[in-house]
Design a binder for these strands. Structure first.
Lengths: 229, 229
DNA sequence: TGCCGGATTCGACTATTGGATAATGGTCAG
DNA sequence: CTGACCATTATCCAATAGTCGAATCCGGCA
């Protein structure tokens, strides 16, 4: 029992899941593999297997945007090492992944041997990123950290509803898709707005969007304000 | 008259505007310079000077997100060459700028001589981008092109309102800031939703967000897979 | 001058959203 | 078992959002 490892592979692309599973097979013997191809299944699988040894997570699953799922899952399951497997190999994305709690980042363009090396390293407790990526001192943008903290305070249902808000759905549509009454969704939305410290759904969606990918450029922050007149 | 050039410099950072103006002075004699530091002033200036020779536009002005302003202004003033001057020097951003109609892209980190070279090249009718950037065949993402097309169908007021929706403002707040009644804003919003082919403000905001910066990763399309087996 | 079309404006009406409160049932930890 | 928290639903109410029709303004243009 104790030496049988459990892996969760979350990616909406079946062929890619297969590739990942194959690579895992080369890293450990006798591994339990659980697959997820959507936010729904991912949540169910993670909740149902809190003792899993590793989560391989695609940054882009249907129903989840950018770092939201990573930040959320990490906050709920701190003992579950998570490796991001993404088509983006932008250094900024890699750094932000680690800052949001990932234990590794493996570009989808990696060679199989690289992929396996990454998995092994993380299983050994290391933080693994591609060669040439400098993690050093830079910290998570404070605004982004606040949003991540707010996300971590959400319940699983609330998180799911928030992601659906992020698709521009009406309460009524969300209620239908989740099979509950509109009143329930309204209660969730109210709770979400409170926890995210915003006043309406549009602002909640904008907050989530900031965890998507590019916190724009360098945001001139400093400077003035005077400009106005 | 005819040989006096008019330049529009749009950037919210006064010091940087000054630097740009100085560089322009080294490129042409006797130039009329008009400055803009916000979406409001930019719109006013562009509308009021349709015969300007060149627009130097920052990608990040308060009140405008990413490529929205570029796409919009280009569609309304096709004869106004526009050069993006941005702190981002990501090749993808440069390519998308050109795809959205810019005649050039000059990183803010450029040497002054480079900046001037870029301005001269564009004034000569060329398309100028930093060395090493390959513009080649790739086309604008079709979804992004649809959004840009929708933006180009908006009236100036509608565009301004849409950008304010993008900040999560209420109709009431927008009405106050623009000095009109809430009913007017509601009418604008309705028109915007129609033209953008969406059902509510949140979806409109999400569409605009897609022109912000990173059309996420490479959208799995191709590949994948092979890595496997 | 006078007409046309689009942009802008606005009020009235309806739909959706946001917020407060309350009640029920399930789960989990102490 | 009991209390704490979550999910669910309902009801009621106030605020916001969105639609429709209409008046006004404004820049061409015959």
């Amino acid at each position: 029992m104790t030496n049988k490892s459990t892996f969760i592979v979350a990616d909406d692309h079946p062929l890619f899941r297969e590739a990942l599973i194959h690579a895992i097979g080369n890293c450990v013997e006798d591994a339990d593999i659980i697959e997820a191809d959507s936010l729904d299944t991912l949540q169910a699988v993670v909740e149902g297997n809190p003792e899993a040894d590793l989560l391989l997570l695609d940054l882009n699953m249907p129903g989840v945007s950018g770092f939201s799922a990573l930040a959320y899952i990490r906050s709920k399951h701190e003992s579950l090492p998570t490796v991001i497997v993404s088509a983006m190999d932008d250094p900024a994305v890699i750094r932000r992944s680690i800052q949001h709690g990932a234990s590794g980042f493996i570009p989808k363009s990696s060679a199989i041997s690289t992929l396996e090396a990454g998995i092994r390293a993380v299983l050994d407790g290391e933080v693994w990123v591609p060669d040439g990526i400098n993690l050093q001192d830079d910290r998570l943008d404070s605004e982004e950290a606040e949003i991540a903290a707010a996300l971590s305070s959400l319940t699983p249902h609330q998180f799911r509803v928030l992601m659906m808000l992020g698709e521009g759905l009406l309460n009524k549509q969300i209620a239908y898709q989740l099979g509950v009454s509109e009143a329930t969704i309204k209660a969730h939305v109210t709770a979400i707005l409170r926890k995210m410290h915003v006043n309406n759904r549009t602002q909640a969606v904008l907050a989530v969007e900031r965890l998507r990918t590019s916190t724009l450029p360098v945001a001139e922050t400093d400077s003035s304000a005077n400009a106005a007149t």
